Computed example of a mutant assay.
Amino acid sequence: MTYSVWLSFFSYTIISAISPGPNNILALNAAGKSGIKMQRRLLSGIYLGFFCIMIICGVFSTVLAVILPEITDYMKYAGAVYITWLAYHVATGRPLKENNTETEKSSFNRGFLLQFVNVKIIIWGLTAFTGFVLPYYDSPIIIVGFIFLLSFIGNGSTHIWAVAGVGLGSLLKKYWRSANIIMGLSLLYSAVNLVL
């Protein structure tokens, strides 16, 4: 990968991962109400489930690229369309309202199973692999490395929301318009670089 592709990869993965989504809002709510220590089982479930989804995305994308090698060219454009759509919604989105029932009965299973219905991270993982990884690498060791890297980025972002708790929520609510526009423009940059 060239420098600009790496920059696009990190822009896409970090900005998308740190933007509000089911994992981040759940972590923010749960840790904000009862602390990280009290929610460690829920957070552990999220982290392990996320890692499992990245394994599935990596294997699925690699197998698809082997069976239909030309698919990565088309998936790159599909990924760019998805990132552009995401950029628009992030830039024009409004602050999410917290759901007071999110932290009730927080458990490992709840965090783990959430990942298998979390469309945001599934599409995020597939886009990262088909748009940024597979066009440049086909070594199983490198693919495994990207599974760990993507898991670190995704789970790290969720942990940032958990650590920040209510503090991050109030900061984003206060400056939501500026934060959304900056994140949206960064995502748009990633989409353009993906197809160039």
Score class of each variant (00 low, 15 high):
W124E: 10
I147Y: 05
V192K: 03
G45M: 10
V163A: 15
S34Y: 06
L188I: 03
T158C: 15
E98S: 06
I141F: 02
I56P: 02
G167L: 03
G58I: 09
S151C: 01
G35W: 12
S157V: 01
F132Q: 06
G184Q: 12
S139M: 08
Y175A: 04
F9V: 06
S11R: 06
D73N: 13
A91H: 08
S16I: 00
L172P: 07
I147G: 02
Y74T: 15
A30N: 15
N29H: 07
S16G: 13
K174G: 04
S16N: 10
F152E: 05
L188H: 06
G156R: 04
Y137P: 05
K120W: 05
F116S: 09
L168C: 11
I181V: 12
S186V: 10
I143R: 01
K33S: 07
S4F: 15
P22T: 09
T158F: 00
I122Q: 11
K37H: 15
L64K: 03
A128P: 09
K76E: 05
F51M: 14
K173E: 10
L196R: 09
V163R: 15
F60H: 00
V66M: 12
F132K: 15
L172N: 13
R40A: 10
Y88T: 09
S8V: 11
T101Q: 14
K97V: 05
K76R: 12
G131W: 02
S61Y: 01
L126F: 09
K33H: 07
I123D: 02
G58Q: 02
I67W: 05
D138Q: 08
A164E: 04
I18F: 11
G49A: 05
M75Y: 04
